[in-house]
């Protein structure tokens, strides 16, 4: 108590006034480089992206001639665009539903005490550090038409004759992309959920023990409801990762077979860079924005309400 009063006294006597001007200068000086930098390399391209979507710019003719809604009309007329949009939503919803279940289960386990916990923790987090592109190449071979070890095991078990051809069949290719996405997001989500779980006061756990709540009741009626906000945060991060990703699709299927697994990000890339039609590419990528803005708004609201972030 007296310490606090003393600290308050010291604070009020701080010689701040004399430094005020230089402080303001410092605040401006410290922030300006970062702000200018981000505006130049993130903000400017963003504005340019919007402008490009209303123009007819191509790799060969990079001048911005505005054509109104013509480019967007062309984008919307392409059936591949609609499939990409549907896939983006489908991949995101399914993989994040899986992520919630697996990450919560993992976090519940990793906060318990058992032998070799450190080793398991380290291993679980591996996919998070493994470069997405490289991990996806490992998956590429794991799902290979001829060499797939999964097929091999299925064959040994007598469940399969020949090969699954994971990436060559529309449905299996969709499933493969979802598996890789889930695989990659689960560790990060588990870490976030784990942190939230450790923040639950032990008193609550002790109290539920005394009241005779068993393991499952405690888990489902106390721990999981308490963790709901932090699980929400994990999901939002997962959603951003899966909505915007194109590496997995690019490396795994290149959008194939015949554009069946195309997503917005990859379609924008193939149209814009490989196809050379920058305007249509930018127009396609533009449709990522509503999703991202919605997610950003949700995150900020969540962060304010639960005082995370």
């Amino acid at each position: 108590m007296s310490d606090e009063a003393l600290a308050a006294g010291v604070a009020s006597r701080r010689p701040r006034r004399s430094l005020l001007d230089s402080e303001r200068l410092l605040a401006v000086g410290g922030l300006t480089p970062a702000v200018v930098y981000i505006v130049a390399l993130v903000g400017f391209p963003f504005v340019l992206a919007v402008l490009m979507a209303f123009s007819d710019v191509t790799v060969g003719d990079p001048s911005l001639d505005f054509v109104g809604l013509e480019t967007l009309r062309q984008v919307l007329e392409d059936p591949v665009f609609w499939r990409a949009l549907r896939n983006t939503l489908f991949f995101t919803v399914v993989s994040n539903a899986l992520v919630v279940i697996l990450a919560t289960a993992l976090a519940l386990i990793l906060t318990k005490d058992f032998k070799f916990k450190w080793l398991i923790r380290l291993l679980v987090l591996l996919p998070w550090t493994t470069p997405v592109s490289l991990a996806t190449i490992s998956w590429l071979w794991t799902l290979d038409t001829i060499f797939s070890p999964i097929d091999w095991v299925l064959r040994q078990l007598g469940l399969l004759e020949g090969n699954m051809i994971w990436l060559g069949q529309p449905r299996l290719a969709l499933a493969s992309v979802i598996i890789v996405h889930t695989w990659r997001i689960v560790p990060l989500a588990a870490v976030i959920v784990m942190a939230g779980m450790l923040a639950i006061p032990t008193e609550i756990r002790d109290a539920s023990d005394i009241d005779g709540a068993g393991f499952w009741r405690r888990t489902f009626e106390i721990e999981i409801p308490l963790m709901a906000p932090i699980i929400g945060v994990a999901v939002l991060f997962g959603v951003i990762l899966s909505v915007t990703d194109m590496t997995v699709v690019h490396v795994l299927t290149r959008g194939g077979p015949t554009n069946y697994t195309q997503v917005l990000a990859s379609w924008a890339f193939y149209k814009g860079i490989e196809g050379g039609d920058l305007a249509q590419g930018a127009g396609t990528a533009l449709f990522l924005l509503p999703v991202l803005v919605a997610v950003a708004a949700l995150i900020l609201r969540f962060a304010r309400r639960t005082e995370v972030l």
Binding site: T244, L278, G281
Partner: peptide, 14 residues
């Protein structure tokens, strides 16, 4: 929250 992907094309042009 703003991903590289959404900025890919204009970034490339810039």
């Amino acid at each position: 929250l703003y991903p590289v992907v959404a900025a890919t094309l204009p970034l490339w042009l810039t």
